[in-house]
């Protein structure tokens, strides 16, 4: 009590932030867990008895297919982001400091622009009568317009476009640290370029890669509006399934269970990220 009085400011701040997080993060998430084990009710959304039916439903071959497909699309998105982002971050970190600042700024600008509007802009390009088809037809490269819009490919393109900066930024920050010190050292010790890349660069950038993967893979499964706009309103992503359960089909337990699946995926990725950081820390000490 004495200490509380001594530090009223500290106490007040802690109560405020803990209160906020408990009330608006922890409680709601517990509610979702609760909802996932209840029974669907057409009138009140949820009712007793408690059961695990909705989890069983998750493993119904049909929905399992949706999840696997969603994971596949998110995986493709992540792979493309990594393939584009890794060399990008490396090239960026090799430039002069002032240029780096400018280019990072240019990278963030789209991220600060409304994501719906950017998704819509892609539609202008990908549509059958869109600009890409018009350009290709005009150049005589194709005879028939390509059907790109409302395909899974279009959704992946949209996701890569929206999420690329989230892959590049963590990668850039590890490359930036790494570039000067370690590469030089290993080079001095006579290691070849390829060997430096395989044994030094890749392991040292692993935490950045994992951070990037985390920042891309999870949202890629949830961004339902990208699938709606570019994928033709089919249930292509887990996000679409979850949204439908809450805003259309009214099967809350199932929607809650699907969302818990995403949370579990996040936990696994967070764990992997921590592990890689710790291993790196150990190696640095050794």
């Amino acid at each position: 009590m004495h200490r509380v009085l001594q530090q009223p400011f500290k106490t007040a701040v802690l109560i405020l932030v803990w209160g906020w997080l408990l009330l608006l993060v922890l409680t709601p998430n517990l509610l979702v867990v609760g909802a996932s084990v209840m029974t669907r009710d057409p009138g009140t959304f949820l009712s007793l008895p408690l059961n695990l039916d909705s989890y069983r439903q998750l493993f119904d071959p049909l929905y399992l297919d949706v999840f696997l497909n969603s994971l596949y699309m998110a995986g493709m998105t992540t792979v493309f982001c990594l393939l584009i982002g890794y060399p990008f971050a490396w090239a960026l970190s090799g430039l002069g400091k002032q240029r780096q600042t400018l280019l990072i700024f240019l990278l963030i600008v789209p991220f600060w622009t409304n994501s719906l509007v950017r998704t819509y802009a892609l539609k202008l390009l990908l549509a059958t009568n869109g600009l890409i088809n018009n350009a290709l037809l005009g150049l005589g490269l194709i005879d028939e317009p390509l059907r790109m819009l409302y395909t899974e490919g279009a959704v992946v393109i949209g996701l890569v476009y929206l999420l690329l900066p989230f892959m590049i930024l963590p990668l850039y920050s590890v490359f930036d640290d790494l570039r000067k010190e370690l590469l030089m050292a290993s080079h001095d010790l006579g290691a070849g370029k390829l060997s430096t890349f395989l044994h030094v660069t890749i392991p040292l950038t692993l935490p950045g890669v994992l951070a990037g993967v985390m920042l891309v893979l999870l949202p890629a499964m949830g961004l339902f509006f990208v699938a709606d706009i570019l994928g033709g309103s089919r249930n292509l992503l887990v996000g679409n399934v979850i949204k439908n359960q809450f805003l259309d089909a009214r099967d809350w337990p199932f929607g809650a269970a699907a969302s818990i699946l995403l949370t579990v995926a996040m936990a696994v990725l967070l764990f992997a990220h921590r592990l890689s950081q710790r291993r790196l820390g150990d190696e640095a000490r050794a």
């Binding site: 509610l31 949202p219 339902f224 969302s259």
Partner: peptide, 11 residues
């Protein structure tokens, strides 16, 4: 880190 949709339905 949580996907927005998870936060959304919990709220």
């Amino acid at each position: 880190m949580s996907p927005e949709i998870v936060l959304a339905i919990s709220l």
